Simulated assay, not measured.
Amino acid sequence: MIYQGKELTTGILKTPVSSSLYVSKVQIEGDGQADLTVHGGPDKAICVYPEEHYAFWEKLLGKKLERGTFGENLTLRGVREHEIGIGDILAIGEVIVQVSQPRQPCHKLAKRLDWPEAVLRVQESGLTGYYFRVLKEGYIAPESEISRIASDEGRVTVAFANKLRYEDKFNREGIQRLLAVAALSGSWRQTFEKRLAELNV
């Protein structure tokens, strides 16, 4: 991607496909991440963005946005941040996935949209998307059906986790609830364990 006259190495440039793709434990076939220190890995194998959010951003930005604009691997309907919890398990085609953490937008999104405020606005809106880890590999296609197999008993939604991260930072009980979810990604667990320790000082 060329940004302000300079070449930027990034994996955020996603475009819709019509074929079936194989999903492994670390990525979807044909995908890649540029900065593996903060992107990719088993806890962040698949980035998801709810299709319903596009209308909000299109109205705000005054232009049509192609699905995949937010760098997601899957654009899904009916599974927004307040409708799904950390640890929930879903079947998509042959693939079994588990919600591991909210998505944290990075500066590459701001550059993709050519909108410096993008990261902050996405965080403030709560329309972040989230990540899946892959429990069972297999093929998915655009017409694959989605079904929820199980919900984590803690029922900590992605929306609530986002609120703890960016707004309600001193909610000790909320942090404890989040940390009690075994499926929480390692990076988010480390962040909130540190925050809880600071609150207990």
Rank of each mutant, 00 (worst) to 15 (best):
E94H: 07
L76I: 13
F70R: 03
R103Y: 04
G62N: 10
G85R: 01
V158T: 06
K136F: 14
C106N: 09
Y166I: 09
G71D: 03
S125G: 09
A91Y: 02
G129H: 05
Y166A: 07
R133T: 12
I46S: 00
I92C: 04
P50A: 14
W115A: 10
K111A: 09
G129C: 06
G93R: 10
I140W: 01
A45I: 04
R133I: 07
R133V: 07
P142V: 13
V122T: 04
S125L: 05
K163M: 07
G138A: 15
T75I: 05
I149S: 03
A55T: 13
S147A: 13
L90V: 01
E66C: 04
F170H: 01
G85L: 06
D152P: 08
D152F: 03
F56L: 13
K163S: 14
D88T: 12
L127S: 10
K63E: 09
R112L: 02
P102N: 14
W57E: 14
S100G: 07
Y131T: 00
R77W: 01
K111H: 07
D88K: 11
R177Q: 10
Y54P: 04
G87F: 02
E51W: 03
S147C: 15
S151L: 10
K64I: 06
I46V: 15
L113P: 05
E167H: 15
E52P: 03
L135M: 15
F160R: 03
R172L: 11
V95N: 00
P105E: 06
P105S: 07
V97I: 03
V156Q: 00
V158F: 01
I175Q: 05
P50F: 04
E81N: 14
R148N: 06
E167R: 15
G138L: 11
L65D: 02
L135E: 14
A110I: 12
P142A: 15
